[in-house]
C-alpha cells in the first residue's frame, strides 16, 4: 500500500501500462509539452498527469498534437481499429464539442458496424468539474451526455485506486472508454495497492453502509456525499453511500439491493438536472423496484444553467455537503436542526 494522489496514481498506471505493452500510445495537447520550444523542460500535461512519460517512452509513443481535437481523436479511433491502444488526453471535457462526430458517430459505432470483428481499445481521459472558477466552457461534467451514446463506456473515478484501476480496465476493454477525472480531485490522496489492480468496469463500491437511505454519488460529489453521511451519523442516521464508479455499464444490482433495504434513494449528480445520470438512476430504480420505495426519490443537481464564473454564483450553483444533508433529511421527513 502506498498513499498517493489521483494525479500520481494515474501517472503510475500509465507507466506500468506503457512499460508492459508497447502498442499503447498517449496522445494529446501539451502532454509532454514544450514541443518545438527550445531549451525548456517537460510540462507533462496541464494537470501534470502525463509528466515524465515523454522522457521515458519517447515522442513516438507520447504524442503532442496541434489543437485539433477532431482529428487527433479520430486518429486515435482509427489507430485503435488497427492495432494500437491509444490513451487520449482531452484537456477539458468541454472541448468534446469540436471532436464530437469522431466520438459519437465513429468511435462509438465502429465495433457495432463491424459486428465485433475488431476491438476498439480507445481510452479518452478527460477532465470535468466546477469549483475553481473556470467558468462555462472549462467546468462541465458531461458524462451524462456521453453515457447516452450506445457503444461508449463511461467511468468517473473518485479515488486514486479507482483512477488507476479504471484506467487499467479501460485499456483492456474492447470498447472505447471515456474516463472523466475531476479537476478538483487530482490532489486527492488515498491508499493504493502496489500493483495498482484493475477495477472492473461496471462494478460500484459501497462506501459506507447504513439503513436509513441509499445515496448514489460519483466524482467529487461522492466526497461531498461522504461528508454529508458523516454529519448525519451523529444524529443516528446511517446511509448506504454508493459510488458506482462507472456509469456505463452501471452497477444497478448494487443500487437496487440497497434501495430494497433502505426504501429511500438520493442521487447526487454534478452533471445536469435534466435527462442525466441522476434521472437515469432514479428512472431505473422506479421502473424495476417501485414497490421498494417508501418515498419519491430525490435528485440533487445543479440548476439548469451554464456554469457561472463569479465565486458566489459558482458556489450557489454547485451541490455541497450541506445541500446533500438537507436533501436526505427532507426525504426522511426530518427537520434540518433537530
Amino acid at each position: 500500500m502506498t498513499r498517493m494522489s489521483i494525479r500520481d496514481a494515474l501517472n503510475r498506471a500509465h507507466q506500468d501500462l506503457m512499460a508492459a505493452d508497447d502498442t499503447i500510445v498517449v496522445i494529446g495537447e501539451d502532454i509532454a509539452g514544450g514541443a518545438g520550444v527550445k531549451g525548456g523542460a517537460e510540462l507533462g500535461g496541464v494537470f501534470g498527469v502525463t509528466r515524465g512519460l515523454g522522457a521515458k517512452f519517447g515522442e513516438g509513443r507520447v504524442i503532442d498534437t496541434p489543437i485539433s481535437e477532431a482529428s487527433f481523436i479520430g486518429m486515435a479511433t482509427g489507430a485503435a481499429m488497427t492495432g494500437l491502444k491509444p490513451i487520449v488526453e482531452l484537456m477539458f471535457s468541454d472541448f468534446i464539442g469540436v471532436a464530437f462526430d469522431q466520438i459519437l458517430n465513429q468511435a462509438a459505432k465502429a465495433r457495432f458496424l463491424a459486428n465485433g470483428r475488431f476491438d476498439l481499445p480507445l481510452v479518452i481521459r478527460t477532465t470535468m468539474g466546477a469549483g475553481d472558477s473556470s467558468a462555462a466552457m472549462h467546468s462541465q461534467s458531461l458524462y451524462g451526455v456521453l453515457a447516452q451514446i450506445p457503444g461508449l463506456m463511461v467511468a468517473c473515478p473518485s479515488t486514486p485506486a479507482d483512477a488507476a484501476g479504471l484506467l487499467k480496465a479501460a485499456v483492456g476493454s474492447p470498447d472505447p472508454v471515456v474516463l472523466f477525472e475531476h479537476k478538483g480531485l487530482y490532489g486527492h490522496e488515498g491508499d493504493v495497492a502496489d500493483d495498482l489492480p484493475a477495477v472492473p468496469l461496471g462494478k460500484g463500491r459501497l462506501v459506507t453502509e447504513g439503513e436509513s437511505a441509499t445515496v448514489v454519488a460519483l466524482g467529487a460529489m461522492r466526497h461531498a456525499a461522504e461528508a454529508a453521511v458523516t454529519s448525519l451519523e451523529a444524529r443516528g442516521i446511517s446511509i448506504d453511500l454508493i459510488d458506482p464508479r462507472t456509469i456505463v455499464p452501471l452497477d444497478l444490482t448494487l443500487i437496487a439491493n440497497s434501495v430494497k433495504k433502505t426504501g429511500h434513494l438520493v442521487v447526487v449528480d454534478e452533471g445536469t438536472d435534466f435527462g442525466g445520470f441522476a434521472d437515469a438512476v432514479i428512472s431505473a430504480v422506479a421502473r424495476d423496484h417501485f414497490g421498494a420505495l417508501k418515498a419519491a426519490p430525490v435528485a440533487v443537481t445543479p440548476p439548469h444553467t451554464p456554469i457561472p464564473y463569479g465565486r458566489a454564483g459558482e458556489h450557489a450553483w454547485l451541490p455541497h455537503a450541506d445541500t446533500i444533508t438537507a436533501a436526505i433529511l427532507a426525504l426522511l421527513d426530518m427537520q434540518e436542526t433537530a
Binding site: 438536472d273 435528485a299 440548476p303 439548469h304 444553467t305 457561472p308 465565486r311 454564483g313 458556489h315 450557489a316
Partner: peptide
Amino acid sequence: SDEAVARWATRLGGA
C-alpha cells in the same frame, strides 16, 4: 453572481 445565476435558473426551463 449568485443572484445573477438564480435569475437564469428560472428562465432556462430545467426540471
